[in-house]
Design a protein around this nucleic acid. Sequence first.
DNA 1: AAAAGTCAATACGCATGCGTATGGAAATAT
DNA 2: ATATTTCCATACGCATGCGTATTGACTTTT
Lengths: 229, 229
Amino acid sequence: MRFAEESRHELHCSCLNTCNDPQGHSLFYDDMKTSSKKKSLNPADWEAATLDVIAHQGVSAVAVENIAKDLGVTKGSFYWHFANRKDLIISALKSWQRDDRAVIKEKIWSIKDPQERLNAWFSLSAQPLQSHLIYATLLADRQHDYVAKLLKEVTMERLAYLQKSYQAIGYPEDQAKQQALLAYSVYVGYLHMAKTLHGKFKDTDNIESYARYVAGQLIPSGKKPAAEG
Amino acid sequence: MRFAEESRHELHCSCLNTCNDPQGHSLFYDDMKTSSKKKSLNPADWEAATLDVIAHQGVSAVAVENIAKDLGVTKGSFYWHFANRKDLIISALKSWQRDDRAVIKEKIWSIKDPQERLNAWFSLSAQPLQSHLIYATLLADRQHDYVAKLLKEVTMERLAYLQKSYQAIGYPEDQAKQQALLAYSVYVGYLHMAKTLHGKFKDTDNIESYARYVAGQLIPSGKKPAAEG
DNA sequence: AAAAGTCAATACGCATGCGTATGGAAATAT
DNA sequence: ATATTTCCATACGCATGCGTATTGACTTTT
């Protein structure tokens, strides 16, 4: 057996069923034909399948034999790619963190105006991405030390760039810090709300309406969110 | 064996280690000496121990043999009180829901002025009660159908009384609905934030400061939160 | 005092799921 | 063509944890 040596990590985004993200996938694949079946699996495939499980059932639901079945192979194959279950989970989560950082860098920090940037962040946060689901489940899987560590890292990073944007708007440091905490709490709360009430969300017209309302409450003045529709 | 027949539910609040709530406990005990040991266990004891596990490790971490050990007995005793593991979990969660409703009724709805009532709610939400921890972990244990059902119920109830209070202040129905959703999202987000960052919370002075800030942002005008210190 | 009821200990069967051992087939290298 | 690497299947050992069966002690009732 050999183990993934912090290498060979193509981007992945499986999103088997419930996660309908409108991003472009095909950009990322270079090693396989986009439409046909692969002959064999690589660690990234296992990580993607693992993230699907984590997104919908949490870390403790990750079972190598089930994931193997999802991938159409048996457990025997797994231990060629990874040392053990924990290795798989940690690798998958690191991969998630990398992808998340990349998205923020591309889609948020590319925006220079801080107000527009905050609007873009709220807009991104309201989209049904698998990435959000993973974060939401991790929040309740803190028993595992490695999850707690990762979660703290990610959360601090996110709070930092929110605070930075609020300061760029003109908030003094202390208030920017609290406002970032408030905004981020709304994000986290929204994640759970959306899952908990799923159908019932139409009550308040729809999510778009609510998202605009929230942005209006949490972003001071100036430009409106890039309205369309 | 015999099973708990929807009866014999004294209030409970164990809070073994991490949950330091400053509420009065001894009020609730009537059937046992407050300081000495009980001779035998009843379903409420099992439910309380179960809620401790749920609060800190989630539903899937509930293991009857471990809980038995926590209570100083073996598994053999358990199946006299409950039919099975699922029965225990559901009973425990129902007990939690009952207690939660009771607290809201006593401490929130006893307040007539809607602004003060909202302030009281935010204040209650910021306190480190076991009840909050349980709610937070349930959010990620939605895979279990009974959890999803309960969660939806509880969330809808809470949104309803928040909306009601905002309407009592003068918000039109639609806006009150969105504002309730916003306020409740902040609550849920805060729960996770507090756990995720634990130590790091001192950065923004302390929680009190943040709680006042949030209340100031989410409750329109009028009275301030009952300031002390 | 005897019988019934209450709560708990021990021991067992069984399913799940992790990790290992071993062998095999297909691809790639030499 | 042969050897090596790569990826996977099968089979096993082992731990955990649920649920059951049986027995026993202690309490309450009669």
